[in-house]
Amino acid sequence: MAEYFQDYITVAVFAGFGALLVAAAVGVGWLLRPSRPSAAKATAYECGIDPVGGGWSQTHIRYYIFALLFLIFDVEAAFIFPWAVRLEQLGLFALVEMVIFIVILLAGLVYAIRKGVLKWES
């Protein structure tokens, strides 16, 4: 049982160590650093002047488009790895299948570019 889970445990221990390290460093820092809070120190930094309005504001729709574009290809990336590993055994049929798949996805990318989502100048 332990052998079956060993890879998972290794990964979990290594990842957990990363989080623990930050906690430990902050803890050690707590012993050394001063703490003199003041209202001025707690304000958001805007180059020295008092902040105008809130820090959370409306954002640009273009970033949202990139997330959509990303989704097109990220699913493909998950499919393409098992295919790549077994390509030699699967042979010509799998090759043709994947080329068709890639061409369909490329058509999506070409459509997005022709729609002008990558153009930021108006």
Partner: peptide, 23 residues
Amino acid sequence: SSGNKYSLIGGLRAGAQLIAYEL
């Protein structure tokens, strides 16, 4: 989480950049 406009714009740029170059 910083509640700062520079941080927000920087974070959005980082998000867009990291997913674009992930591919």
